[in-house]
């Protein structure tokens, strides 16, 4: 890889981060929120790879990335499981309606 590819990577990271944060802040659907979180994590994974690439530590960052994917999957699974339970018990996936705890 050369310099231009890391530029592409950088643009990709920024784009994904933007999409992720935009999704987190605006989406009302629980499943989409979990997806937005996933997009954020993917952005950082890409970031890790690009960073490792520019500093010649690709082996290190690959091992990091694999670990992150594992940990992140667990979080996503729990998130989805909670969403399913919420759909069952509350009957909605809309976070705006999930605001009984306030004050």
């Amino acid at each position: 890889m050369n310099l231009s590819s890391s530029y592409v990577g950088l643009i990709g990271i920024l784009g994904l981060l933007g999409v992720g944060f935009y999704g987190l802040l605006t989406t009302r659907n629980l499943i989409r929120i979990v997806i937005a979180l996933q997009i954020l994590v993917k952005a950082t994974l890409l970031g890790l790879i690009v960073a490792g690439n520019t500093s010649n530590q690709i082996n290190l960052v690959q091992s990091l990335a694999v670990t992150v994917i594992v940990a992140d999957t667990v979080v996503a699974v729990i998130g989805i499981a909670l969403a399913v339970q919420i759909r069952r018990r509350v009957g909605t996936l809309d976070v705006k309606e999930l605001s009984t705890l306030r004050g």
């Binding site: 987190l24 802040l25 605006t26 989406t27 009302r28 929120i33 976070v95 705006k96 999930l98 605001s99 009984t100 705890l101 306030r102 004050g103």
Partner: peptide, 13 residues
Amino acid sequence: RTTQTGQLSWNLF
């Protein structure tokens, strides 16, 4: 206390 809205997007904000 009104700042604790209970809205997830507000929390993330």
